[in-house]
Amino acid sequence: MKLSKDEVAHLAELARLKLDESQIDKMTAEVGSILEYVESIQKVDVAGVEPFSMPAKSQGFRPDEAFDCDDLTRELILENFPGRAGDLLAAPGVFSNPKN
């Protein structure tokens, strides 16, 4: 199916991608031609077919437990913060200045 420019702009907003007018035009054309191509699968009869899912692991999942990390690993994680206040992660406020 062909998507409209408004639909692509909405998808971009959902995906947190700020696109300008010309980028939206370009994406509308490209995404449209790819969607037309992949629609060929809708001709395949899938009546009674289960969606594929990975077989479950025999030994189950690892325990969801916190574990200690060494100083180097910790420092590397902190160094990668794009905003840092001491050893804390600095981020824009969630409730301040909401969009529009």
Partner: peptide, 21 residues
């Protein structure tokens, strides 16, 4: 937020959408 390039000084939504774009 936790790693990667961040465009600084913007409200939250724009921080996401402009940094990603």
């Amino acid at each position: 937020m936790r790693f990667g390039a961040r465009k600084q000084g913007l409200p939250l939504f724009e921080t996401y959408s402009e940094s990603r774009a």
